[in-house]
Design a binder for these strands. Structure first.
Lengths: 151, 151
DNA sequence: ATCCTTGCAAAGCATTTGCAGTCAC
DNA sequence: GTGACTGCAAATGCTTTGCAAGGAT
Protein backbone atom coordinates (compact mmCIF):
# COMPACT_ATOMS: atom_id res chain seq x y z
CA UNK A 1 0.00 0.00 0.00
CA UNK A 2 2.65 2.62 0.81
CA UNK A 3 4.11 3.31 -2.58
CA UNK A 4 3.91 7.05 -2.09
CA UNK A 5 7.37 7.41 -0.61
CA UNK A 6 8.81 6.62 -4.01
CA UNK A 7 9.57 9.53 -6.29
CA UNK A 8 6.37 10.63 -8.04
CA UNK A 9 8.01 10.21 -11.44
CA UNK A 10 8.55 6.52 -10.78
CA UNK A 11 4.99 6.01 -9.62
CA UNK A 12 3.69 7.86 -12.64
CA UNK A 13 5.88 6.04 -15.13
CA UNK A 14 4.79 2.70 -13.81
CA UNK A 15 1.12 3.59 -13.87
CA UNK A 16 1.37 4.96 -17.39
CA UNK A 17 3.19 1.91 -18.71
CA UNK A 18 0.62 -0.35 -17.13
CA UNK A 19 -1.94 1.50 -19.23
CA UNK A 20 0.15 1.61 -22.39
CA UNK A 21 0.73 5.33 -22.28
CA UNK A 22 3.85 7.43 -22.50
CA UNK A 23 5.73 9.36 -19.88
CA UNK A 24 5.96 13.06 -20.68
CA UNK A 25 7.29 16.07 -18.87
CA UNK A 26 3.85 17.67 -18.86
CA UNK A 27 2.15 14.70 -17.26
CA UNK A 28 4.94 14.49 -14.73
CA UNK A 29 4.57 18.15 -13.81
CA UNK A 30 0.82 17.82 -13.39
CA UNK A 31 1.19 14.73 -11.26
CA UNK A 32 3.98 16.23 -9.20
CA UNK A 33 1.87 19.22 -8.36
CA UNK A 34 -1.31 17.30 -7.72
CA UNK A 35 0.31 14.79 -5.41
CA UNK A 36 2.01 17.51 -3.42
CA UNK A 37 -1.07 19.48 -2.47
CA UNK A 38 -4.19 18.84 -0.45
CA UNK A 39 -6.02 21.77 -1.97
CA UNK A 40 -8.11 19.92 -4.53
CA UNK A 41 -7.35 22.36 -7.35
CA UNK A 42 -9.39 23.00 -10.48
CA UNK A 43 -7.87 22.32 -13.89
CA UNK A 44 -7.15 25.99 -14.26
CA UNK A 45 -5.41 26.17 -10.90
CA UNK A 46 -3.26 23.22 -11.87
CA UNK A 47 -2.48 24.97 -15.13
CA UNK A 48 -1.35 28.16 -13.39
CA UNK A 49 0.72 26.31 -10.82
CA UNK A 50 2.41 24.00 -13.30
CA UNK A 51 3.08 26.75 -15.78
CA UNK A 52 5.66 28.32 -13.48
CA UNK A 53 7.60 25.09 -13.30
CA UNK A 54 7.47 23.82 -16.85
CA UNK A 55 8.56 25.85 -19.87
CA UNK A 56 5.44 25.34 -21.92
CA UNK A 57 2.19 23.63 -21.22
CA UNK A 58 -1.28 24.43 -22.43
CA UNK A 59 -4.56 24.30 -20.59
CA UNK A 60 -5.79 21.65 -22.99
CA UNK A 61 -2.84 19.46 -22.09
CA UNK A 62 -3.56 19.94 -18.41
CA UNK A 63 -7.10 18.73 -19.00
CA UNK A 64 -5.81 15.77 -20.97
CA UNK A 65 -3.16 14.96 -18.38
CA UNK A 66 -5.65 15.10 -15.54
CA UNK A 67 -7.96 12.74 -17.38
CA UNK A 68 -5.02 10.43 -17.98
CA UNK A 69 -4.18 10.43 -14.29
CA UNK A 70 -7.76 9.65 -13.40
CA UNK A 71 -7.70 6.83 -15.92
CA UNK A 72 -4.56 5.42 -14.33
CA UNK A 73 -6.04 5.61 -10.87
CA UNK A 74 -3.60 8.27 -9.71
CA UNK A 75 -6.17 10.98 -9.24
CA UNK A 76 -9.84 11.48 -8.64
CA UNK A 77 -12.19 13.96 -10.25
CA UNK A 78 -14.59 15.78 -7.95
CA UNK A 79 -17.72 17.39 -9.29
CA UNK A 80 -19.93 19.63 -7.25
CA UNK A 81 -21.55 21.56 -10.06
CA UNK A 82 -20.63 24.95 -8.68
CA UNK A 83 -18.19 25.91 -11.40
CA UNK A 84 -15.20 23.81 -12.35
CA UNK A 85 -14.38 20.24 -11.44
CA UNK A 86 -11.66 19.68 -8.87
CA UNK A 87 -8.94 17.07 -8.77
CA UNK A 88 -7.65 15.07 -5.85
CA UNK A 89 -4.23 13.43 -5.99
CA UNK A 90 -4.73 11.28 -2.93
CA UNK A 91 -5.53 7.67 -3.61
CA UNK A 92 -5.91 6.30 -0.11
CA UNK A 93 -9.46 5.93 1.25
CA UNK A 94 -10.75 9.19 2.64
CA UNK A 95 -13.80 11.41 2.48
CA UNK A 96 -14.37 15.05 1.73
CA UNK A 97 -15.95 17.90 3.62
CA UNK A 98 -17.12 20.83 1.55
CA UNK A 99 -17.68 24.29 2.98
CA UNK A 100 -21.03 25.67 1.90
CA UNK A 101 -19.70 29.19 2.25
CA UNK A 102 -16.34 29.25 0.53
CA UNK A 103 -16.64 25.99 -1.47
CA UNK A 104 -13.24 24.77 -0.35
CA UNK A 105 -12.83 21.04 0.09
CA UNK A 106 -11.13 19.39 3.05
CA UNK A 107 -9.94 15.86 3.49
CA UNK A 108 -11.50 13.74 6.18
CA UNK A 109 -9.64 10.65 7.31
CA UNK A 110 -11.63 7.54 7.94
CA UNK A 111 -13.62 4.86 6.27
CA UNK A 112 -17.18 3.73 6.59
CA UNK A 113 -17.67 0.25 8.07
CA UNK A 114 -18.41 -2.09 5.20
CA UNK A 115 -21.44 -3.50 6.97
CA UNK A 116 -23.12 -0.11 6.83
CA UNK A 117 -22.71 -0.14 3.10
CA UNK A 118 -23.81 -3.75 2.85
CA UNK A 119 -26.96 -2.82 4.68
CA UNK A 120 -27.73 -0.14 2.15
CA UNK A 121 -26.91 -2.50 -0.69
CA UNK A 122 -29.86 -4.63 0.31
CA UNK A 123 -32.20 -1.86 -0.69
CA UNK A 124 -30.88 -1.60 -4.20
CA UNK A 125 -32.74 -4.53 -5.76
CA UNK A 126 -30.43 -5.90 -8.38
CA UNK A 127 -28.14 -2.91 -8.54
CA UNK A 128 -24.59 -4.19 -8.23
CA UNK A 129 -22.74 -1.86 -5.89
CA UNK A 130 -19.02 -1.50 -6.56
CA UNK A 131 -18.20 1.62 -4.60
CA UNK A 132 -19.47 4.62 -2.76
CA UNK A 133 -18.67 8.20 -2.01
CA UNK A 134 -19.45 10.14 1.12
CA UNK A 135 -19.36 13.90 1.31
CA UNK A 136 -19.84 15.99 4.41
CA UNK A 137 -21.17 19.52 4.09
CA UNK A 138 -20.98 22.37 6.53
CA UNK A 139 -18.79 25.31 7.41
CA UNK A 140 -15.04 25.43 7.70
CA UNK A 141 -13.07 27.13 10.45
CA UNK A 142 -12.99 30.43 8.64
CA UNK A 143 -16.67 30.40 7.73
CA UNK A 144 -18.35 29.45 11.01
CA UNK A 145 -21.89 30.87 10.87
CA UNK A 146 -21.55 32.05 14.47
CA UNK A 147 -21.27 35.64 13.38
CA UNK A 148 -23.09 36.83 10.29
CA UNK A 149 -20.53 39.58 10.01
CA UNK A 150 -18.23 39.27 7.04
CA UNK A 151 -14.75 40.61 6.63
CA UNK B 1 -44.95 9.80 4.97
CA UNK B 2 -44.16 13.24 3.61
CA UNK B 3 -46.77 15.94 3.16
CA UNK B 4 -47.12 14.84 -0.47
CA UNK B 5 -50.72 13.72 -0.06
CA UNK B 6 -51.73 17.32 -0.64
CA UNK B 7 -52.14 18.46 -4.22
CA UNK B 8 -48.74 19.51 -5.60
CA UNK B 9 -50.12 22.92 -6.54
CA UNK B 10 -50.93 23.68 -2.91
CA UNK B 11 -47.51 22.57 -1.73
CA UNK B 12 -45.86 24.66 -4.40
CA UNK B 13 -47.94 27.76 -3.79
CA UNK B 14 -47.19 27.65 -0.12
CA UNK B 15 -43.47 27.20 -0.63
CA UNK B 16 -43.35 30.00 -3.18
CA UNK B 17 -45.23 32.42 -0.95
CA UNK B 18 -42.94 31.60 1.94
CA UNK B 19 -40.12 32.75 -0.30
CA UNK B 20 -41.89 35.76 -1.70
CA UNK B 21 -42.27 34.39 -5.19
CA UNK B 22 -45.23 34.02 -7.49
CA UNK B 23 -47.20 30.99 -8.52
CA UNK B 24 -47.13 30.44 -12.27
CA UNK B 25 -48.43 27.77 -14.58
CA UNK B 26 -44.88 26.99 -15.76
CA UNK B 27 -43.52 26.44 -12.28
CA UNK B 28 -46.53 24.30 -11.45
CA UNK B 29 -45.99 22.13 -14.50
CA UNK B 30 -42.33 21.65 -13.72
CA UNK B 31 -43.05 20.79 -10.11
CA UNK B 32 -45.91 18.47 -11.03
CA UNK B 33 -43.67 16.52 -13.36
CA UNK B 34 -40.69 16.44 -11.06
CA UNK B 35 -42.66 15.26 -8.05
CA UNK B 36 -44.36 12.53 -10.04
CA UNK B 37 -41.25 10.78 -11.30
CA UNK B 38 -38.36 8.94 -9.73
CA UNK B 39 -36.23 9.26 -12.85
CA UNK B 40 -34.04 12.18 -11.79
CA UNK B 41 -34.41 13.97 -15.12
CA UNK B 42 -32.09 16.55 -16.63
CA UNK B 43 -33.36 20.06 -17.31
CA UNK B 44 -33.80 19.12 -20.94
CA UNK B 45 -35.82 16.03 -20.08
CA UNK B 46 -38.06 18.11 -17.85
CA UNK B 47 -38.45 20.55 -20.71
CA UNK B 48 -39.51 17.86 -23.17
CA UNK B 49 -41.91 16.24 -20.73
CA UNK B 50 -43.53 19.46 -19.60
CA UNK B 51 -43.80 20.84 -23.09
CA UNK B 52 -46.45 18.28 -23.97
CA UNK B 53 -48.62 19.38 -21.07
CA UNK B 54 -48.24 23.13 -21.13
CA UNK B 55 -48.93 25.24 -24.21
CA UNK B 56 -45.71 27.20 -24.14
CA UNK B 57 -42.65 26.97 -22.01
CA UNK B 58 -39.05 27.62 -22.87
CA UNK B 59 -35.94 25.76 -21.80
CA UNK B 60 -34.70 28.88 -20.06
CA UNK B 61 -37.86 28.98 -17.99
CA UNK B 62 -37.42 25.34 -17.07
CA UNK B 63 -33.93 26.14 -15.81
CA UNK B 64 -35.23 29.11 -13.87
CA UNK B 65 -38.13 27.12 -12.44
CA UNK B 66 -35.89 24.29 -11.36
CA UNK B 67 -33.59 26.72 -9.58
CA UNK B 68 -36.61 28.25 -7.91
CA UNK B 69 -37.77 24.85 -6.69
CA UNK B 70 -34.31 24.10 -5.33
CA UNK B 71 -34.33 27.45 -3.58
CA UNK B 72 -37.68 26.64 -1.98
CA UNK B 73 -36.46 23.26 -0.83
CA UNK B 74 -38.83 21.38 -3.10
CA UNK B 75 -36.14 19.83 -5.24
CA UNK B 76 -32.51 18.89 -5.17
CA UNK B 77 -29.89 19.39 -7.83
CA UNK B 78 -27.59 16.47 -8.53
CA UNK B 79 -24.26 17.02 -10.20
CA UNK B 80 -22.06 14.22 -11.39
CA UNK B 81 -20.09 16.10 -14.00
CA UNK B 82 -20.90 13.68 -16.79
CA UNK B 83 -23.02 15.99 -18.86
CA UNK B 84 -26.09 17.71 -17.50
CA UNK B 85 -27.22 18.18 -13.93
CA UNK B 86 -30.16 16.12 -12.77
CA UNK B 87 -33.04 17.09 -10.52
CA UNK B 88 -34.69 15.12 -7.75
CA UNK B 89 -38.17 16.02 -6.58
CA UNK B 90 -38.06 13.87 -3.44
CA UNK B 91 -37.40 15.68 -0.22
CA UNK B 92 -37.40 12.83 2.27
CA UNK B 93 -34.02 11.41 3.34
CA UNK B 94 -32.68 8.90 0.85
CA UNK B 95 -29.49 8.09 -1.01
CA UNK B 96 -28.64 7.60 -4.65
CA UNK B 97 -27.06 4.82 -6.63
CA UNK B 98 -25.56 5.79 -9.95
CA UNK B 99 -24.93 3.32 -12.77
CA UNK B 100 -21.43 3.70 -14.13
CA UNK B 101 -22.57 2.37 -17.47
CA UNK B 102 -25.78 4.21 -18.33
CA UNK B 103 -25.50 7.07 -15.81
CA UNK B 104 -29.04 6.60 -14.57
CA UNK B 105 -29.68 7.34 -10.94
CA UNK B 106 -31.72 5.18 -8.60
CA UNK B 107 -33.15 5.95 -5.21
CA UNK B 108 -31.92 3.97 -2.25
CA UNK B 109 -34.05 4.00 0.87
CA UNK B 110 -32.30 4.20 4.18
CA UNK B 111 -30.32 6.45 6.37
CA UNK B 112 -26.85 6.24 7.80
CA UNK B 113 -26.66 5.79 11.58
CA UNK B 114 -25.87 9.18 13.04
CA UNK B 115 -23.07 7.75 15.16
CA UNK B 116 -21.19 6.81 12.02
CA UNK B 117 -21.34 10.40 10.92
CA UNK B 118 -20.45 11.65 14.37
CA UNK B 119 -17.39 9.48 14.28
CA UNK B 120 -16.28 11.04 11.04
CA UNK B 121 -17.03 14.50 12.37
CA UNK B 122 -14.31 14.03 14.93
CA UNK B 123 -11.73 14.02 12.20
CA UNK B 124 -12.77 17.36 10.78
CA UNK B 125 -10.97 19.63 13.23
CA UNK B 126 -13.15 22.67 13.56
CA UNK B 127 -15.22 22.02 10.47
CA UNK B 128 -18.86 22.34 11.47
CA UNK B 129 -20.74 19.50 9.81
CA UNK B 130 -24.36 20.24 8.95
CA UNK B 131 -25.14 17.48 6.52
CA UNK B 132 -23.81 14.73 4.33
CA UNK B 133 -24.45 13.01 1.07
CA UNK B 134 -23.83 9.38 0.25
CA UNK B 135 -23.69 8.04 -3.27
CA UNK B 136 -23.36 4.41 -4.27
CA UNK B 137 -21.83 3.54 -7.61
CA UNK B 138 -22.05 0.34 -9.59
CA UNK B 139 -24.15 -1.25 -12.29
CA UNK B 140 -27.90 -1.32 -12.64
CA UNK B 141 -29.98 -4.36 -13.56
CA UNK B 142 -29.73 -3.66 -17.26
CA UNK B 143 -25.99 -3.01 -17.23
CA UNK B 144 -24.67 -5.93 -15.21
CA UNK B 145 -21.08 -6.62 -16.33
CA UNK B 146 -21.86 -10.24 -17.24
CA UNK B 147 -18.38 -10.89 -18.54
CA UNK B 148 -15.78 -9.43 -16.17
CA UNK B 149 -13.26 -8.97 -18.92
CA UNK B 150 -10.30 -6.91 -17.80
CA UNK B 151 -6.90 -5.97 -19.14
C1' DA C 1 -50.75 49.44 -11.18
C1' DT C 2 -46.69 47.14 -9.75
C1' DC C 3 -42.99 44.45 -10.53
C1' DC C 4 -42.08 39.47 -10.85
C1' DT C 5 -41.87 35.97 -14.84
C1' DT C 6 -41.55 34.46 -19.31
C1' DG C 7 -39.53 33.64 -23.91
C1' DC C 8 -36.18 34.38 -27.17
C1' DA C 9 -31.68 34.59 -28.58
C1' DA C 10 -27.24 35.82 -27.54
C1' DA C 11 -23.63 35.34 -24.24
C1' DG C 12 -20.75 32.85 -20.88
C1' DC C 13 -17.95 29.07 -19.14
C1' DA C 14 -15.76 24.86 -18.57
C1' DT C 15 -14.24 21.29 -21.24
C1' DT C 16 -13.29 18.86 -25.59
C1' DT C 17 -11.58 18.28 -30.21
C1' DG C 18 -9.12 18.55 -34.96
C1' DC C 19 -4.88 18.91 -36.76
C1' DA C 20 0.05 19.57 -37.73
C1' DG C 21 4.31 19.60 -35.53
C1' DT C 22 7.03 17.24 -31.90
C1' DC C 23 8.70 13.80 -28.94
C1' DA C 24 8.97 9.26 -26.36
C1' DC C 25 10.16 4.74 -27.13
C1' DG D 1 10.83 5.49 -37.66
C1' DT D 2 6.23 5.24 -35.74
C1' DG D 3 2.52 6.41 -33.31
C1' DA D 4 1.31 8.88 -29.22
C1' DC D 5 1.35 13.61 -27.22
C1' DT D 6 1.28 18.60 -27.29
C1' DG D 7 -0.30 23.28 -28.34
C1' DC D 8 -3.33 26.20 -30.50
C1' DA D 9 -7.75 27.70 -31.47
C1' DA D 10 -12.13 26.65 -32.84
C1' DA D 11 -16.00 24.06 -31.45
C1' DT D 12 -19.22 21.98 -28.24
C1' DG D 13 -22.69 21.58 -24.78
C1' DC D 14 -24.89 23.08 -20.65
C1' DT D 15 -26.52 26.95 -18.33
C1' DT D 16 -27.24 31.85 -17.63
C1' DT D 17 -28.56 36.46 -18.93
C1' DG D 18 -30.57 40.94 -21.04
C1' DC D 19 -34.59 42.79 -22.37
C1' DA D 20 -39.36 43.66 -23.83
C1' DA D 21 -43.90 41.69 -23.46
C1' DG D 22 -47.07 39.34 -20.43
C1' DG D 23 -49.09 37.88 -16.08
C1' DA D 24 -49.84 37.40 -10.86
C1' DT D 25 -51.24 39.78 -6.84
Amino acid sequence: MPQSHRPPEAVLREALEANGQRFTEQRAAVYRFLSSTDKHPTADEVFLAVRSQVPVISLATVYKSLETLVGCGLAMKLNYGDGSARYDGRTDPHHHARCLECSRIFDVAGDLPSDEISELKEGTEGFHVTGYRLELTGYCTRCQPVEPAEA
